[in-house]
Amino acid sequence: MDADEDKVFRALADAGRRELLDRLHAEDGQTLGQLCARMGITRQAVTKHLKVLEGANLVVPIRRGREKRHYLNPVPIQEVADRWIHKFERGRLLALADLKERLEGDHGG
């Protein structure tokens, strides 16, 4: 596993960081203040979580003037899903299709 994937897995391992990602998924482009108001944890804790998410490239901060907004970047999660989840789904889907075909064959359907 490469270092970037390690960072993604570490970032996703924490429930608070997953909640931040969920909140950004629901409403992208939030400020630190908006995220803090909805999290119920300190500003310092949210900032710390955001640094880890930024380090894993899961959150991208964009500064406009004095305002800094945080945006979800789902690409690293998709890459993890492609490598670690989707390849295992194929076998299961093929087995289900085979089972369906056999069951329909038994019933003449």
Score class of each variant (00 low, 15 high):
residue 1 M to V: 14
residue 3 A to S: 14
residue 4 D to N: 11
residue 5 E to M: 14
residue 5 E to Y: 15
residue 6 D to N: 14
residue 6 D to T: 15
residue 7 K to L: 12
residue 12 L to E: 00
residue 12 L to F: 12
residue 13 A to W: 08
residue 14 D to P: 05
residue 14 D to A: 08
residue 16 G to K: 04
residue 17 R to G: 00
residue 21 L to Y: 01
residue 22 D to R: 15
residue 23 R to P: 11
residue 26 A to N: 10
residue 34 Q to H: 06
residue 34 Q to S: 08
residue 35 L to M: 03
residue 37 A to W: 08
residue 37 A to T: 06
residue 38 R to D: 13
residue 39 M to P: 07
residue 40 G to Y: 07
residue 42 T to N: 01
residue 43 R to T: 07
residue 44 Q to H: 14
residue 45 A to E: 08
residue 48 K to E: 09
residue 49 H to P: 02
residue 49 H to V: 05
residue 50 L to A: 08
residue 50 L to I: 03
residue 54 E to S: 01
residue 57 N to E: 04
residue 59 V to S: 04
residue 60 V to C: 01
residue 62 I to Y: 13
residue 62 I to T: 10
residue 63 R to H: 10
residue 63 R to A: 11
residue 64 R to C: 07
residue 65 G to Q: 04
residue 65 G to V: 12
residue 66 R to S: 11
residue 67 E to I: 13
residue 69 R to Q: 01
residue 69 R to S: 03
residue 69 R to V: 02
residue 71 Y to N: 03
residue 71 Y to E: 00
residue 75 V to W: 10
residue 76 P to H: 07
residue 77 I to S: 07
residue 77 I to W: 06
residue 77 I to D: 03
residue 78 Q to G: 06
residue 79 E to S: 03
residue 81 A to T: 12
residue 81 A to K: 05
residue 82 D to C: 07
residue 83 R to Q: 09
residue 83 R to P: 01
residue 84 W to M: 05
residue 84 W to N: 14
residue 84 W to V: 11
residue 84 W to C: 12
residue 84 W to D: 09
residue 88 F to L: 14
residue 89 E to P: 05
residue 89 E to A: 10
residue 92 R to F: 14
residue 95 A to R: 07
residue 97 A to N: 09
residue 98 D to M: 08
residue 99 L to K: 09
residue 101 E to V: 07
residue 102 R to L: 13
residue 103 L to W: 13
residue 106 D to W: 15
residue 106 D to M: 15
residue 109 G to M: 12
residue 109 G to N: 12
